[in-house]
């Protein structure tokens, strides 16, 4: 579904992605973790073209990024992206946020989109918040609207860029619960997160990145209980200490 082969990327002189090779199968859930600045956000931002790659191959849903034949706009409708900072449209209600792209990008009739939008918002537990503006919602609620906004496009792939790290601790689980639900329905997902409970519950693989390179991959149980490299051990001891 997502295939990286020898992908490199620089920000100026900074080598942010080093020779990345990674395969994500359909219906697979992959958690990406690593210290800050390790390139994990950049990695998933490349998949829907928010960042461009310098060289190597990146194939998403059978389409090679950077090819002239690849229509990025079309590809992006198949790839949902959930941001750390939610990025809800502040001038639109929750429901309007959810149905904006389906109406204007997918060209779905408004009435139909509204039905689907209500359904999606109900699914993430916000049936009573259709007409609330983002500023009236808590962080956890906003992030759930953001997830519903992606789901409403019926994507084949969902990408999550640290979806819970801007949230107050008591709101993290309501968002993770929604994400677990999405995973259990068989969505192909790549999630940048340090939430190990989430990784244990639904991830098939954990990818550990450091300094722009993939250092280690493996099933979550194995990665957490028996990390193979010094760098992953050091990282895990830091995040598990508390």
């Amino acid at each position: 579904m997502i295939k990286f082969r020898g992908v490199n990327k620089w920000f100026g002189a900074l080598h942010v992605l080093k020779d990345i090779t990674l395969n994500v199968e359909p219906r697979e859930v992959v958690v990406v973790c690593g210290p800050s600045g390790s390139g994990k956000s950049t990695l998933i931002r490349c998949i829907n073209g928010l960042e461009t790659i310098k060289n190597g191959d990146l194939v998403v849903d059978g389409q090679r990024l950077g090819d002239r034949a690849t229509n990025m706009t079309e590809l992006r409708t198949e790839v949902g992206f959930v941001f750390q900072s939610f990025n809800l449209y502040p001038h639109k209600t929750a429901l309007e946020n959810v149905i904006l792209a389906p109406i204007h990008v997918r060209k779905i009739p408004k009435a139909e989109a509204e039905i689907a939008g209500r359904e999606m918002l109900a699914k993430v537990g916000l049936a009573d918040k259709f007409n609330s503006y983002p500023a009236e919602l808590s962080g956890g609620q906003q992030q759930r609207v953001a997830i519903a906004r992606c789901l409403c496009m019926r994507p084949k792939i969902m990408l999550f860029d640290e979806p819970t790290s801007a949230l107050d601790p008591e709101m993290i689980s309501e968002v993770l619960d929604v994400m677990v639900g999405v995973a259990e329905e068989g969505m192909t997902m790549m999630v940048v997160t340090h939430e190990m409970g989430f990784a244990r519950k639904v991830a098939r693989r954990v990818v550990f990145m450091d300094a722009g390179a993939i250092v280690e991959t493996g099933p979550p149980e194995e990665f957490f209980s028996n990390p193979k490299t010094d760098r992953s051990r050091a990282f895990l001891s830091k995040i598990l200490r508390h």
Partner: peptide
């Protein structure tokens, strides 16, 4: 972030 949210949902520049 607002612009990126639009890009990520497949909107064109004018949209």
């Amino acid at each position: 972030g607002q612009v990126e949210a639009g890009i990520a949902s497949g909107m064109t520049y004018f949209q």
